[in-house]
Simulated assay, not measured.
Amino acid sequence: MIWHLIDSSSVGGAERHIATVAGSLMRDAHAVRVMLYQRHGDNPWLRQLDAEGIPYSVLDGTFGGLVLALRSEQPSLVHTHGYKSGILGRLAAMLTRIPVVTTFHSGQRGPWPVGAYDFVDDWSSFSAHRIAVSSEIQSRLPLSTTVIPSYVVTPTVCPDLALPRKIGFVGRLSEEKGPQHFCMLARRFGDLGSWHVYGDGAMRGALEAEFGDVVTFHGVQTNMDRVWPQLGLLVMPSRFEGVPLAALEAAAAGVPVLASRVGGLPTVIVEGATGWMFPYGDLESAGQCLSMWSAQVEHGAMDLRAACWTRAREHFSETRWFPEILKVYEVALGRALR
C-alpha cells in the first residue's frame, strides 16, 4: 500500500497531481490510498476522488493519530505533499521506519508564518527522497532533488472540434493565481468571447461582486473532463507557477493557453504554436495575444488544437513520466515494487 499524504482543504494543483498519480498507480495494479491529515469542512476534492474511484481516508489532525495510523496500516511507502504533511509525515515515518518520498509543488515561499513552515519543510526533507515538479522549484531547494513534472493522461486521438469563443480561468481564486487580472481582461476584451471562472477561493466574493456582469463564476468542478471540450482558451495570469496541471490538461484537450511568462510555463507553451505568454501583470501584452487567438479562431484553429495535443502527448504524458515516479519509489524502498 502506498499512501499519498496531504493536508487539503480544497482543490488545487497538488490535489490534482495526487489524483493523477494515484490513478496511474491503480491502473498499474498498485494499492494506493490518499490520506488527508484532517478534515476541513466541505472539501470539494473529496467529491472528485469519489467520482474517480480513488480511495481516501481522513485522519484526526493530530501527530499521534498519524503515527497510530501508520503503525496500524503499515503502508510500504508514504508520499507527502505540502509543508504540513511533509514535516509531520516524514517525522512519523521515521518513528515507524517507513520509507518516504516528498514532492515539492510550490516555488515561492509564502508570507509569515507559511514561509517559515516552508523553510522547515525544505530543510527537514533530508530523510526523504525528494521530487520537484519543475526545475525552478528544484533550484530553490537546499537538498538534491529529482525533477519530475506533473503529467496527464492524453486522449489517443486529437480532438477535432473547432475552438469555441469561450475563455476560461481554472484554479484557486487567490492572489498569486491572478484571477483579478483575468477579470480585468474580461472587462476590456469581453467582445472576443464569453468569460468563465472554474474554481473557488477567498477572492471569489469580491470578484463576483465587481465582475459578475462580464464573468460567469461556476465554482469548483467535480469533473473537468466535461469542461475542457467547451473551452477555446485557458488564461493563466499567475504570479508564479511550477508546471501547472491545468495547463497540461488544457493542452491534452487541444485547448491553447495564454499565460504569464513565469515558473515552468515556458516549458509547456510553445509561443504562437500552442499558446502565448506575456509578462506578469502586463494586460496590454495579454490583450495583443488575445487578438492573435481570436484571429485564429475565425478559421477554426484546428492546427492550434493539434499542436496542443501533440505537445502534451510527447512531453507531458503518463507514459513519459509515471515510470520516473516508480523509479523514485523503488530507490526509496530499496527494492522493485513488484
Rank of each mutant, 00 (worst) to 15 (best):
D225T: 12
D50E: 12
G281A: 14
L283M: 15
P237Q: 14
W309V: 02
L265F: 04
F217Y: 01
H17N: 10
G201I: 01
E73L: 08
T154D: 09
P55R: 03
P113H: 02
L68I: 14
D191T: 15
L265N: 13
C289R: 12
V11Q: 13
A69C: 13
I148W: 07
V215Y: 14
A252I: 03
V114R: 06
H81W: 01
A286C: 14
T146Q: 11
R188D: 15
L234R: 01
A301Q: 07
V34L: 15
M26I: 07
G287F: 11
T146K: 14
A336D: 12
D303L: 14
L326D: 00
Q221N: 07
S135M: 11
C289P: 00
G193W: 02
F211I: 06
G281I: 13
Q221S: 13
G264I: 06
T20E: 14
P279N: 05
T274P: 06
M184A: 14
V215I: 11
L66H: 07
T80G: 11
S134C: 10
M236N: 04
A209C: 03
S174P: 02
M292D: 08
S317Y: 00
G110W: 09
V220W: 12
T319S: 08
L77E: 02
S124R: 13
C308D: 03
P99W: 00
L46R: 14
A253T: 03
G219K: 04
